[in-house]
C-alpha cells in the first residue's frame, strides 16, 4: 500500500513541523540559556549546590510524596467502595467525585481558600466550636490540601476502572482456598490494581511537583520549585537559573512518568 504510506507521511508533516518549531527548538533554547548565565554550565547543578534551591527541591519532593500517598490511600478506599457496592445515588456520587477532574490549579487554590482561608468554612466551624481559628490555606498544609483536591478525581477514575476490571473470580478463588478478607486484599486485590496504583500515583506525584496555579493562588511565599522558578524569572530576571531549574523539574517529572510506565506498562501523563 505505497500510496497510503505517502499519505501517512504527508499527514505527519504538520505534526513534525509544529513539534519541531514550538517544542524541540524552544527546549534547545531553554538548555542553551540555562548554560549561558554568569555561572556557565555550573548553573545546571545549582539545584543541588545552592542550599536554598536544594531545600526547596527537598521540600517539593516531600510534599509531592505526601500528596501521592494520601491521594492513593483515599482513592483506593473510595474506589473499592464504589466499585463493589450498588446503591441509590451511586452514579451521582461517582459524578460528583470525578467532576473536578479538570478544575485548573488556580480554581483549586481558591477552593482551598474557601475551605481553610481566613473567611473559610473550617475557620468559622472551629470558631463556632470554640477551638480557635483554623487557617492553614496559605502554608504547605494548604498546598497539600490543594494538590490532593487536584489529583483525587484523576486517581479515582483510574482506580475505579482498574477495580472494575479485576475478575471477581480471583477473589472468590482465594476465599475458596481459605484466605481471610485481609489476605485476599493483600494477596489478590491490591496486586491486581497495582499497575493502576503506580500509574495514577506517578501522575499525582508529577503533577504536584510541577503544579503552579495552586501555589500561585495560595501564596507566593511557599517555597516550592514551581514558585522559585517563577520568582527567579519574573521578579529577579534571572533567566539562566529559571531555565536550569525548569530543566531539572522537567527531567524529574518526565523520569517519574517514564519509569512508572515501564513498570506499569500503560500510558502515563501528567496534567496541568
Amino acid at each position: 500500500m505505497h500510496s497510503a504510506d505517502r499519505l501517512a507521511r504527508l499527514f505527519l508533516l504538520p505534526l513534525f513541523l509544529f513539534v519541531a518549531a514550538f517544542f524541540l527548538l524552544p527546549m534547545v533554547r531553554l538548555v542553551g540559556v540555562a548554560g549561558s548565565g554568569p555561572n556557565g554550565l555550573a548553573e545546571y547543578l545549582a539545584i543541588l549546590t545552592n542550599p536554598r534551591h536544594l531545600a526547596t527541591l527537598l521540600a517539593t519532593l516531600a510534599l509531592s510524596a505526601a500528596v501521592t500517598a494520601a491521594t492513593l490511600a483515599i482513592g483506593t478506599v473510595v474506589a473499592l467502595f464504589l466499585a463493589r457496592n450498588r446503591f441509590v445515588g451511586r452514579p451521582l456520587l461517582v459524578s460528583l467525585l470525578t467532576l473536578p477532574l479538570a478544575f485548573p490549579g488556580v480554581v483549586v487554590g481558591f477552593m482551598v481558600i474557601l475551605l481553610a482561608g481566613r473567611q473559610g468554612l473550617l475557620s468559622s466551624l472551629s470558631m463556632g466550636l470554640g477551638m480557635g481559628r483554623w487557617v492553614f490555606a496559605y502554608s504547605m498544609a494548604g498546598l497539600f490540601a490543594g494538590y490532593v483536591y487536584f489529583s483525587l478525581p484523576r486517581v479515582l477514575v483510574t482506580l475505579m476502572a482498574a477495580v472494575e476490571k479485576l475478575d471477581p473470580a480471583l477473589e472468590e478463588a482465594a476465599r475458596s482456598l481459605g484466605a481471610s478478607r485481609a489476605q485476599v486484599m493483600r494477596d489478590v486485590t491490591l496486586p491486581g490494581i497495582a499497575p493502576a496504583l503506580m500509574a495514577s500515583g506517578a501522575i499525582a506525584f508529577a503533577t504536584a511537583m510541577g503544579a503552579f496555579g495552586t501555589a500561585f493562588t495560595l501564596a507566593t511565599r511557599i517555597d516550592v520549585l514551581a514558585m522559585t522558578i517563577y520568582t527567579e524569572f519574573t521578579l529577579n530576571a534571572n533567566f539562566a537559573t529559571a531555565a536550569a531549574l525548569s530543566i531539572a523539574l522537567g527531567l524529574i517529572t518526565w523520569m517519574v512518568l517514564a519509569l512508572t510506565r515501564n513498570f506499569a506498562g500503560s500510558g502515563v501523563a501528567a496534567a496541568g
Binding site: 505534526l15 513539534v19 514550538f22 517544542f23 524541540l24 527548538l25 524552544p26 527546549m27 533554547r29 531553554l30 540559556v33 508529577a206 511537583m209 510541577g210 503544579a211 503552579f212 514551581a226 522558578i229 517563577y230 524569572f233 533567566f239 529559571a242 531555565a243 525548569s246 530543566i247 523539574l249 522537567g250 517529572t253 518526565w254 512518568l257 517514564a258 500510558g267 501523563a269 501528567a270 496534567a271 496541568g272
Partner: peptide, 20 residues
Amino acid sequence: VVTLPVAIPGLALALALILA
C-alpha cells in the same frame, strides 16, 4: 516526543517558548 509536553510542567514549556 509528541506527548512529552504533557509530562513537562507548563511553567518550563512556557519559559522555553518565551526564550525562543
